[in-house]
Each structure stands twice: as C-alpha cells, then as structure tokens.
Computed example of a mutant assay.
Amino acid sequence: MADAAFAKLLSLEAKRIQDPDGADEILVSRGDGGVFERLRMRVGDVFEFDERFVPFVDGAPIDIVLHEVNEATGQASFIGGAAIVPSELGLGERTQAIGALSLSLYELTYKVL
C-alpha cells in the first residue's frame, strides 16, 4: 500500500452547541494554528469543506482543532480536537467526534488519501 499523503476534510456537523443564542462561532484549524475556516453553526448544521486537502508532514498525525469564539469579547475557547493518522489510508470515509468533554460537540468526516 502506498504512503498516505493527504487527509481530505469532507464535512463538519454540529451535534451540540454551547452558545445560548443558538449558534456557535467556531474556528477550524490545524493543531499548529493555521485557521482553515471560521463558521457560525447551529445544531444539525453540516458544513461541507470545498476541496480541503491537508498534507501529512513526515508521517506525523494531522491535528484538527476547534475553538469557539465569544463574539462579545473576541476570546476563543478550546472545544477539542481530532487526530488523523496516515494508517487510515484505504479505510474510506472516517468520522471523529470533537468536543465530547465540552459543551459543544461536532463530528468531523474526512478521508485519508
């Protein structure tokens, strides 16, 4: 089997949110801080990534993290993260929960290529 080169992010679904106004303002980023998307999501919303390919670097896992932004203060609080590993190559679409220990819960769907 060939080495995995990329993770293709497919979608992010809001299962539970923490913002009392009914929508979370979230940042989707790599663990190293590079922000991919800034989204406003309500329970049941599904965001589909547009051709988002994230490269593996030296075979290390890709960490995808979510932060919720407080619109009033601009401060971000950590929701959780998912680690995508190269060994998932050939397993098809995968889904990981992000934020199980947080007030918010999201599901990230991706594929390793």
Rank of each mutant, 00 (worst) to 15 (best):
A7Q: 08
G22R: 09
P20F: 06
P61I: 10
E25I: 00
V46K: 15
E68M: 02
G31D: 11
L39Q: 04
V65H: 11
D21T: 13
D32H: 07
E51L: 08
G22H: 14
M41F: 05
D3C: 03
V54G: 03
S29I: 03
R40A: 03
F36G: 01
D21E: 11
I64E: 06
R42T: 04
L66F: 06
A7P: 02
R40G: 01
D3S: 10
G44F: 07
V57L: 14
F53V: 03
S29M: 14
V69I: 14
E71F: 02
P55H: 04
A5M: 09
T73G: 05
L12F: 06
D45V: 09
F49K: 13
V65F: 13
V35Y: 05
P55G: 05
A60I: 01
F53S: 07
F36L: 06
D45I: 08
R38V: 02
S77L: 03
I64Y: 13
D45Y: 13
L66W: 10
G34C: 00
Q75F: 08
K15N: 12
D45S: 07
V43P: 02
A23M: 08
V54L: 08
D63Q: 11
K8E: 08
I62A: 10
E51F: 07
E13P: 00
L27I: 09
G34A: 11
E37G: 00
Q75A: 06
L39K: 12
N70Q: 09
E13T: 09
L12I: 06
G31T: 01
V65M: 13
D63W: 09
P55V: 00
E25Q: 14
G74H: 12
V69M: 07
A5W: 11
V57I: 12
E13D: 05
E25W: 15
H67L: 09
K8M: 08
A7V: 10
V54N: 07
R16T: 02
A5L: 14
E13Y: 06
I17T: 09
G59N: 06
E48C: 01
N70L: 05
S11L: 04
D21F: 01
I62E: 10
G33H: 08
E51Q: 12
E13F: 05
A4P: 06
V69F: 07
N70T: 02
P61H: 12
A60F: 12
A60Y: 12
A72C: 02
D63N: 04
Q18W: 10
T73M: 08
R40E: 07
D63T: 03
E48G: 00
